[in-house]
Design a protein around this nucleic acid. Structure first.
Lengths: 216, 216
DNA sequence: TCGGCCTTTGCCCTCGCGGATGATCGCCTT
DNA sequence: AAGGCGATCATCCGCGAGGGCAAAGGCCGA
């Protein structure tokens, strides 16, 4: 019997090593590599061809969702299990659209993670307890479930403005940094807020943190 | 030779178990318990009397700093090693004031953590590489190093308002929730912003996240 | 009893936020 | 050539943010 080959992608080395240590205790699992961000995850996935990638969402640079999309584009047979710090219920449908095979929280215990990996290895979906019901709601709203990630619909300039807003800059400060008018900054923010359907600075900040767009 | 007895306090079960698995690999260390928040850490520390408490800062309810202060008050012989997700350099002096014996980041690798625990067990201070220089700066500014945690100087009402602001509520919404005038809300915010020396909503939100005051 | 702190509120002011609407310019695709 | 889209900037307007100033009532310790 061959072991399930696992790649762990998380920006916290201690979490990577700790989870790897937990999984190595299982005789049907083998951690073949560790990636510290989405770019690293892409590179190592192509190189190591693991069975499952255990992926955090909030990582610097290339985030977990973007990395998932890229991996599924070129290597659709590789299964992705999301290991998130946040209970992003309304976000799961987009992850499913990107092709992930499961979603588990860091609040879960080790046996949950082992169960999740075995389920995904068998080709099943895994959803951490308490999340399942929201996914049912998600399937009821199929239009939304099939929509693409709104963040990907942002232009480069809008992503740039989002990052600067989330970092706490005022419109005037952003205008000076980008050498444009404050009115243009506001226009970009208006557009990106509509695309993301997030209409307060506080929620923009939290969105950016969850997505790994800014560090705190 | 007796093993170093360690209590792990972190609100993420997978992180607790993973780090515990790493530490159990060392034959001079023994994880005697796991706590999921500051209150739990207090209770288990009193019950288990570990040599070292490995403590996260951002935990729901009672945070890591508050728990550290309480533990040091009644059990000063127990050493605390902070395991933080964030590089809160300007915050370290207050942790030192509270009596911690070390500070390490989740970005660190397992061997760093093992070294840190051994150093703390020997009675030394441990500071994760790259942080040491800022601590030198901290000692240069002894007045600040000896100051108390500004958050503790906030009144209950101010802490309440801080939480509601960080959650993204407007002044009017907070006024309605607390059944007071918006002017009073602003007065509370003015006072707490002065005490914390944080003068933008964005930074208040990030402060609240780092301290575990709000969830995201 | 007095002073200090907490909580509350008001008025005034400036500044920033953010939506609606409209416009120009350039690039790219059809 | 025509249309779509992104980036730029503008005006108008209502509302929120936040500082300054003043002050009243309650509670508690000296």
């Amino acid at each position: 019997m061959s072991k399930t080959r696992i790649l762990i992608a998380d920006d916290h080395a201690l979490v990577r090593e700790g989870v790897a240590a937990l999984l190595q205790l299982q005789d049907d699992m083998e951690v073949v590599g560790e990636a510290c961000d989405g770019r690293d995850a892409l590179r190592l996935t192509a190189k190591l061809k693991p069975d499952i990638v255990l992926m955090d969402i909030a990582m610097p640079g290339l985030g977990g969702l973007e990395a998932t999309t890229e991996i599924k584009k070129t290597m659709p047979e590789i299964r992705i299990l999301i290991l998130s710090q946040y209970d992003d219920r309304e976000y799961i449908s987009r992850l499913l659209k990107a092709g992930v095979s499961g979603y588990i929280l860091k609040h879960a215990v080790g046996t949950d993670l082992v169960s999740a990996i075995r389920a995904v290895a068998r080709g099943e979906f895994y959803l951490y307890s308490g999340i399942a019901s929201s996914v049912v709601d998600g399937f009821l709203d199929k239009e939304q479930a099939l929509s693409v990630d709104p963040y990907e619909k942002l232009t480069d300039r809008e992503k740039q403005v989002l990052k600067l807003i989330a970092e706490g800059n005022t419109h005037k400060e952003i205008a000076q940094l980008l050498d444009i008018s404050t009115k243009t900054v506001i226009a970009h923010q208006t557009h990106l807020s509509e695309k993301l359907d997030i209409h307060s600075r506080a929620d923009l900040i939290k969105f950016a943190i969850r997505r790994g767009i800014i560090k705190i």
